[in-house]
Write a protein that binds this DNA or RNA. Structure first.
Lengths: 190, 190
DNA sequence: ATTCCTTCTTAACTTAAGTCAATGTGGTGA
DNA sequence: TCACCACATTGACTTAAGTTAAGAAGGAAT
């Protein structure tokens, strides 16, 4: 199991044996059942996650509606906004499936960064990569129609359509469930 | 002038005197005239910028149209995607005004990070803050109408409406210039 | 000053998403 | 098993953005 983290990190640099061992030893796992809420809007966040199995959704409420921000799946990192800080979370985190994660906390993170500066360097690189990816998807979102966004999702993350409800997918695409339903119908007849 | 960088960085941690001196000494400035293209789509990027004065816009072409990704203004950092890597840039960078920047390059960045690990740590923190901000604006974008997005821009970055053309603003808002024109008209009569 | 070009605005029309409401469907729990 | 509830689909209607086209306004260059 732990290999997945090392595999993930080694996409970015070569990991020293020393660091590999440390990651191994500090690894701390948890399992959650489908539907578990990991973090509530307004609460303080003291955990971050690396997903080994399952799916986590972030969302917030507006006018009573759930607005999906992001879906996180295998080999993705979930670092909540304000992780480790006494500032309320702007969103919920919820498991859409039974989910197995590697859990981190601010204290261990700090210790690890101090002991292995290479790890913090790696974190910087990864944060920048994720930032650029997110900027690219934001740009893609802005320049495409709801239908194009749906088709793009179908192409890039088809698994999500099995894992999440259509309401959740619709809000992720920035549209109403009725519209998604119509888009799907429209595409069926093509 | 250099103070602005230190001021910016000190928003996140206290800067050691040592580091302060190093930043001071490594500071390298450039001025560009309005309209200067700093980076072309497809080119390699070897510079990053901290804006002291002026405005930089990132955009890409699609069907001959310019799609604005972001506007960067005073005290913002512009680190191009693939900065320092032999991978083509996905977008243009252009000065909307006469612009004064502090310029960085991959070599100096690397040296500074090696010499001052605190600086790389700071960069990680800043990257994460920017990432969260961007995620929040993406979420806001998805859940609001073009009119709401315009009103939000008016509230959060009113200066941009003076600095950029309406076409540029419109593409930034993910709409057509005609629509922006109508939205403005609509709001006039309220 | 004139020309040329781009931007901005306006209008008429098309298209698709939002809204509201009704119905069908599937899963959960008592 | 049944009742209930959230989800998904469909239809009728409203609304606003996209499209196309034309004209007005402002700037830059000659």
């Amino acid at each position: 199991m732990e290999n997945r983290i090392l595999k993930y990190l080694s996409n970015y640099t070569t990991i020293t044996e020393d660091l590999e061992k440390a990651i191994y030893e500090s690894a701390f796992f948890k399992s959650y059942k489908k539907g578990t809420v990991l973090l509530k809007e307004g609460d303080f966040s003291n955990e971050c996650y690396f997903i080994l199995e399952g799916c986590i959704r972030s969302y917030f409420l507006r006018d009573g509606e759930e607005n999906t921000i992001e879906f996180y799946t295998e080999e993705q990192v979930v670092t909540p906004t304000n992780f480790g800080k006494p500032i309320p979370s702007p969103y919920y985190l919820e498991c859409l499936e039974d989910t197995v994660v590697n859990v981190g906390n601010p204290t261990v993170e700090k210790e690890m960064f101090q002991k292995y500066p290479q790890l913090e360097s790696l974190s910087r690189v990864i944060a920048e990569v994720i930032l650029n990816k997110q900027q690219a998807s934001f740009a893609g979102f802005k320049t495409s129609s709801p239908e194009e966004r749906y088709l793009n999702l179908l192409k890039t993350r088809p698994d999500l359509l099995q894992r999440a409800s259509q309401r959740q997918i619709a809000s992720y695409l920035g549209i109403k469930p009725e519209s998604l339903s119509r888009i799907r119908k429209r595409l069926m007849n093509k």
